[in-house]
Nucleic acid binder design. Structure first.
Lengths: 190, 190, 190, 190
DNA sequence: GATGAATGAGTGTTCATTCAT
DNA sequence: CATGAATGAACACTCATTCAT
């Protein structure tokens, strides 16, 4: 009984992610999601207050998975550059293996729905990384600039490069990923 | 016969940009655009084949303006680093002065509509910049890496930093812009 | 869940027939049908795929009722002429008592929608009558001419005479109906 | 100058007939007619009060041509049966050579627009034929029955047989037309 | 918990017609 | 005479959501 419910909810989330990937946020209707998840539209309203709630919850779910993947193998005691490089490579691996999740997050983040998410709620999942960066600054390994600027050269280039939408021609193999990391590191290192 | 009223078309484009900024692509309907532009919904179809055509045409219009602004004062003979810095600063100035246009472009680019735009059509407006980068590589001023990777460290960080959506806390003054450029330059320079 | 309300579907069909009678196929819109049937326009799409489906389904429904009425009291063993006369009179009685259904069928048949109906689907309801005619030919009671020609002198004159649109001045009483049948019989008999 | 106008009006009528044939009355809009006639929608309103006026006028025009064709070679002094046979054959020839005009008339007649046409206006074109029938009755060559009944066995079977919509399988050659006339004649003759 | 029926309000688009030129 | 721009109203259809079961 309990299991069945969870299956339904998971089916709904999966359907939402896939459908947004296939047809985009704009064309993504509740009934289409329901059909893809093999449930009634009404069932959706048992688990979520409304469409907005469904989309936002799905986004948070996706972000959790992303942060988990990115921080996989995270070890505070490793050399600073290695921590970052691991993070960087984790990122590319995640996108490669979870294209749909990544694309959903991208589309959501640039939609007005994103304003409904509490930034703190998201940030907390990436806290270890933030702390590492702060330590890097203190230890004078990386430049002492606002966090947003650092992020603009570590996280966003990665997301843009991994995004097949913005980078159509580039082949993402171990080599290009490493080369790209070199640039990121040069950007932030002291 | 009545002459096509150029003001009407401009009003439609402006209304489209503003409305997408206010309520987002997802909620942006033809009738809402028409109302905001003070024309009949039917009038819209005199100037555009359909909604898609309107959104795409508006996007291309916006991109043209952006490229023009970014390449403002462009001078091939200037030192390489200065060309880039000018470009960088132009970008921030444009976003600051044209928040709505920028946000429209951002939302459009991450929507599935973006697939309807011929990439070459857009690229041609930025050609001078691309050529400069190629020359930079040849002259061994910047790293010899794929163009997409260079872009990921010059154009995208700028757009992310300028985007109030992704960078809520950072204050963009002359200083931070210059600091940020330092990182971009360090990333790509040889 | 709510059970499908059979009354609603019947109300929709009835409204469709009546409205086509009142204002004609050309002016017959989905919202007008919905209003006449006292349901929401959206409800219509629960029962029918689209407007076309509604109109075609209604037509087939009407044709079924017509064939049933025409073949009422049909008895293979009766004399050939009597079978035909019964059929003839059934036709006039049906039209007299079901003007709306008949007019709907007429309008539909001459509209381009008619091409969407499988002719075999309709013919099967009139099969007994077709077989009788074939027997009549074999027994040399009626002329040995193509079926379409026979039909043109038995079925169509009846429909034209019964149609108040084409026959405005003629009063259709028992006498005129009988007289008309005399002509039909003279046309086909050997 | 004057000639040009007539050309335009003729183009409009022709476009109307063709378009109704192609897409049916229901889908036939003023702007589509205008486009097919290579004129502005506004031009249409110079020649006709409104859409209804255009359709009705076109119908009357078509009917005139039909009556002219049917009465071609009409000769009061010929034997009664021959007059009728000529009329019958003229009918089939006309339909064969003017499918579009015939189909337009059929669609129009069964649409509610038909009620806007003054029946007397149409009847007057067929007056010679009506007079012949009356004479036939007086001379006791054909049955003394209401005119509508006679018509139902001379005019309507012809139209049904000639109509490719109702008679899909029958091949209309000289032979079948003659055979069919035999039935018509048997129906009405005394 | 789960459903499909039901809906008013909305969607993008086309309509018949008028207007200024 | 002839035009294409312009439009409010209507079009067929889908929406997010609720309801009775």
């Amino acid at each position: 009984m309990r299991i069945k419910d969870i299956n339904k909810q998971e089916a709904i989330i999966e359907a939402t992610v896939l459908l947004v990937n296939e047809i985009g946020f704009v064309s993504c209707s509740v009934s289409k999601i329901a059909k893809k998840a093999n449930v009634s539209p009404a069932t959706l309203y048992i688990y979520y207050k409304n469409k907005e709630d469904l989309l936002v919850s799905t986004y948070i779910e996706v972000k959790k998975k992303m942060s988990k993947a990115l921080l996989n193998g995270f070890d505070d005691s490793m050399p600073f550059r290695d921590i970052l490089e691991k993070f960087w490579k984790n990122g590319f691996r995640f996108v490669k293996n979870n294209k749909a999740l990544f694309q959903y997050a991208e589309q959501f983040a640039s939609s007005p729905f994103s304003e409904l998410v509490n930034p703190a709620e998201l940030e907390k999942h990436f806290e270890p990384m933030i702390k590492v960066l702060q330590k890097g600054i203190e230890q004078k390994v990386i430049k002492d600039v606002p966090f947003d600027i650092l992020a603009a050269f570590i996280f966003y280039p990665m997301m843009n490069l991994a995004n097949s939408k913005t980078c159509k021609s580039l082949e993402l193999n171990d080599n290009t990923i490493e080369v790209a990391f070199k640039l990121a590191w040069d950007a932030i290192k002291l």
